[in-house]
Deep mutational scan, measured.
Amino acid sequence: QAKEDFKKMMEEAKFNPRATFSEFAAKHAKDSRFKAIEKMKDREALFNEF
């Protein structure tokens, strides 16, 4: 479920497709859906799949 929420957050964010993961992470670090994925490498993997 956390992965689905994370993907939904990325869809809602409508970020620049050229944005890096660190830019995305800095902007969304306080979002509970971002925090729900415990490991940063897992967050980055989901970001890269998107």
Score class of each variant (00 low, 15 high):
K30Q: 15
E38M: 07
M10Y: 08
A19G: 15
F6I: 01
F21W: 10
K7L: 12
K8V: 06
H28S: 03
F34E: 02
D42K: 03
E44Q: 08
M9L: 08
S32M: 12
E4I: 10
A45Q: 13
F50G: 07
A13F: 13
A13N: 11
A25T: 08
K8C: 07
M9I: 05
K35Y: 06
A25M: 07
A45F: 10
N48P: 00
F15D: 10
P17I: 07
F6D: 00
K35S: 11
A19L: 15
F24W: 05
I37A: 04
E4T: 08
I37H: 01
A26V: 11
T20V: 05
D42T: 07
S32D: 10
F47Q: 03
K7Y: 12
F34H: 01
I37N: 03
K30W: 09
A29K: 13
A36Y: 01
A19P: 07
K8N: 07
Q1P: 00
D31A: 00
N48E: 14
M10E: 02
P17A: 13
S22K: 12
T20I: 08
D31E: 05
H28K: 15
A2N: 12
E38K: 14
R18H: 10
A2F: 07
M40F: 12
K27Q: 15
A29N: 09
A13G: 14
L46I: 10
E23H: 03
K14E: 14
F34L: 02
E38S: 10
N48W: 04
K3A: 08
E11D: 11
E12V: 04
Q1I: 01
A45W: 08
E38D: 13
E23T: 05
F50Q: 08
E23M: 04
T20N: 08
A13C: 12
L46P: 03
D42H: 03
E44N: 03
K27W: 08
E44T: 02
Q1K: 10
A45M: 14
A29H: 09
A19Y: 11
F47G: 04
N16I: 11
N48R: 08
N48H: 13
A13Q: 08
T20G: 12
D31P: 00
R43F: 03
M40N: 06
F24M: 05
K39M: 12
E11W: 05
K14A: 14
F34W: 08
A36G: 12
F15N: 07
K30E: 14
A2C: 03
E4F: 07
S32N: 12
E49R: 05
R18D: 15
A26T: 11
E49P: 01
A19D: 15
R43W: 00
N48M: 05
E44D: 01
A13K: 13
H28V: 15
N48L: 06
K8H: 08
K14I: 07
N16S: 12
K41R: 11
K41W: 04
E49N: 13
F6Q: 02
R43I: 07
K14N: 12
F6C: 02
A25W: 02
F21V: 03
D5H: 07
F50S: 11
A25K: 06
F21Y: 10
M10I: 12
N48G: 05
A13Y: 13
N16F: 06
S22R: 11
K30F: 08
K35L: 14
A25F: 03
Q1T: 06
A29S: 13
K7P: 01
F50P: 00
F6P: 02
K30A: 15
R43K: 07
A26C: 15
A13I: 07
H28Y: 13
N16T: 12
E23C: 02
E23V: 03
E38A: 14
E44S: 01
K39H: 11
K3T: 12
N16P: 11
E23G: 03
F6L: 02
F15A: 13
K3E: 12
K7A: 04
A29P: 01
I37F: 05
R43S: 01
N48I: 05
K7D: 03
R18Q: 14
N48S: 08
E12H: 02
K8A: 10
P17N: 10
F21I: 03
R18S: 15
F21E: 06
A45K: 14
F50C: 06
K3P: 04
L46G: 04
E23R: 00
A45L: 14
E12T: 09
K39I: 06
L46N: 06
S32W: 10
E38W: 01
F24V: 04
K41S: 13
P17V: 07
F34C: 00
F6W: 04
K14G: 14
A36P: 01
N16H: 10
F24G: 02
T20K: 09
A19Q: 15
E11P: 00
K30H: 12
I37R: 01
A29D: 09
F24S: 01
T20E: 08
P17L: 07
K41Q: 15
R18V: 13
F15P: 11
R43V: 03
R18T: 14
S22V: 13
A29L: 08
A19N: 11
S32V: 11
P17D: 11
K35H: 12
M10G: 04
A26H: 10
D42C: 04
F24I: 05
L46F: 10
A13V: 10
E23I: 00
P17Y: 13
E11M: 14
F6H: 02
E49Y: 05
A2K: 15
K39E: 13
K30T: 15
P17H: 10
P17M: 06
L46Q: 04
I37M: 07
F15G: 14
A19C: 12
E44G: 01
K27F: 14
K39Y: 06
K27S: 09
K41F: 05
S22A: 14
S32A: 14
P17T: 12
L46W: 05
K3Q: 14
A2Q: 13
F50Y: 13
L46D: 03
D31L: 00
A25C: 14
R18G: 15
E12Q: 05
F6R: 01
A26N: 09
N16V: 06
R18M: 12
E12N: 05
E38G: 11
E12M: 05
D5M: 04
D5K: 03
S22L: 11
D42Y: 01
F21N: 05
A45C: 11
F24H: 02
R43P: 04
E12F: 02
M10N: 02
E44A: 04
F24E: 04
E23A: 08
E23F: 00
E12A: 05
M9H: 02
F6K: 03
A29T: 08
P17F: 09
K7W: 08
M40A: 09
A36N: 07
T20S: 13
K35D: 05
M10D: 04
K39T: 10
N16L: 08
E49D: 11
Q1G: 12
F6Y: 10
A25I: 09
A2P: 07
E4M: 04
S22C: 10
A25G: 03
K35N: 11
R43L: 04
K3C: 00
A36R: 10
R18I: 13
A45N: 11
